[in-house]
Each structure stands twice: as structure tokens, then as C-alpha cells.
């Protein structure tokens, strides 16, 4: 029986998303099994919810609208692409201007470069313009959830500890710094 439980949207800062380089193997029997990535602090992610500032947007489509947007939080930047198959996201991006705060819900896309580096992108489902309060709350929430993941790794209670040690250097200090700098930007 196929399952269609909705995946939770993880809160993750741009810097950690950029560093994410482990794509989990999909169930070979089920081509519709969700793709997960494992982030350096141990989040097993299929979907994300991120809030940041739109710093660039460009319609790079030839026939139909196809938007490329850069979105930045206090720790870094990620790309988002939206076209005719993401009508809600496309409408949201078309309505937004630089710079404005955007809330993005989307799935993590994974690709491997020729030198076998795993790269991630966000395939947006919805994009909406939000206010500074929402952005601040997102930073606070993302700081909280990231710190909780760091602590789980440190005290050995993370379910993904083994894979994290195998694939990432367990230098969690840089992510503590990241959380601190994101919070300090709110002060």
C-alpha cells in the first residue's frame, strides 16, 4: 500500500543547507519513495520551510514564466526555481520584489556534480511575502531546532549519529557559531 503521509518541513539555515552533502538511498522497490537528505546536524529532510530575503529574481523562461530567485538568511543564500508546474510558488515570486521577506515551503532536490559532490536545491511548493515579525520568529525557531539537533549529536541521542560521523566532520562548533550569529542579527 502506497503511503502519502505529508513530510514535515524542517527548519534549517542556509549555511547548513549548503553544507548538506548526504543523499539517503531511496527504496529500490518504490520509485515514489521520498528522497531524503541528511544535514550535518542530523536532520533527515525531505521538505523545508525557510524564511529569508529575496536578493535577486529573474524570469529566465523562454516560452513560459520560469523564475530563478536567490534568497538569503543571516547565514547564507540558496537558489529557488519556480515555473508552470509550481503555480503557487510562481505566483508568489512574480508578486515579490527585491528586497522583501519571503516564506518558502519546498522539497529538497539533490544532484551530484561530476566530481561526485552532492548538491541540494529547493523545489518550491509555495512562496509568500511575509513581514519582519514572521522572519524573526523563523530565525528564533530555526535556531532552537538546530541547537536541539546539535545537542542530540553531542549527547549521542541522535538516531543518525553513525551516518553523521561517517560523512561529516563532527565539528559542531561552526554550527553553534552559525546559530549564535543568526540570533545576534536579531538584537
Amino acid at each position: 500500500m502506497a503511503s502519502f503521509a505529508r513530510e514535515v518541513a524542517y527548519r534549517i539555515f542556509a549555511q547548513e543547507l549548503r553544507d548538506t552533502a548526504v543523499a539517503l538511498e531511496r527504496d529500490l522497490e518504490d520509485v515514489y519513495a521520498p528522497q531524503y537528505v541528511l544535514s550535518p546536524t542530523g536532520a533527515k529532510i525531505n521538505r523545508v520551510f525557510v524564511v529569508g530575503t529575496l536578493t535577486e529574481k529573474e524570469d529566465i523562461g523562454t516560452d513560459a514564466e520560469y523564475w530563478r530567485a536567490r534568497i538569503s538568511d543571516p547565514t547564507g543564500t540558496f537558489f529557488v526555481y519556480a515555473g508552470q508546474y509550481q503555480p503557487d510558488a510562481t505566483r508568489g515570486l512574480a508578486d515579490a520584489s527585491v528586497p522583501e521577506f519571503l516564506a518558502v515551503v519546498g522539497k529538497i532536490g539533490v544532484y551530484t556534480t561530476e566530481d561526485e559532490r552532492v548538491m541540494t536545491s529547493i523545489r518550491p511548493e509555495t512562496i509568500s511575502v511575509v513581514d519582519a515579525e514572521t522572519r524573526n520568529r523563523w530565525i528564533l525557531e530555526t535556531a532552537r531546532q538546530t541547537l536541539d539537533r546539535i545537542k542530540e549529536l553531542e549527547n549521542g541521542s541522535s538516531p543518525h549519529l553513525e551516518m553523521i560521523t561517517e560523512h561529516y566532520s563532527l565539528d559542531l562548533e561552526q554550527y553553534r557559531q552559525m546559530v549564535a550569529s543568526a540570533l545576534e542579527s536579531l538584537q
Binding site: 536578493t55 535577486e56 536567490r70 538569503s72 538568511d73 547564507g76 543564500t77 527585491v98 528586497p99
Partner: peptide, 20 residues
Amino acid sequence: DLVERFKVPEAEAERSVVSY
């Protein structure tokens, strides 16, 4: 404005302004 109000890292702010 990007750095102070929108909390964007400086390098990203530079890029955004160049694009503009």
C-alpha cells in the same frame, strides 16, 4: 538596507545590488 534591515550577509548584499 540589505545588511541592516534585511539581515542579509554582506557578500550576498553586494551581489544583490550588483544584479540590480
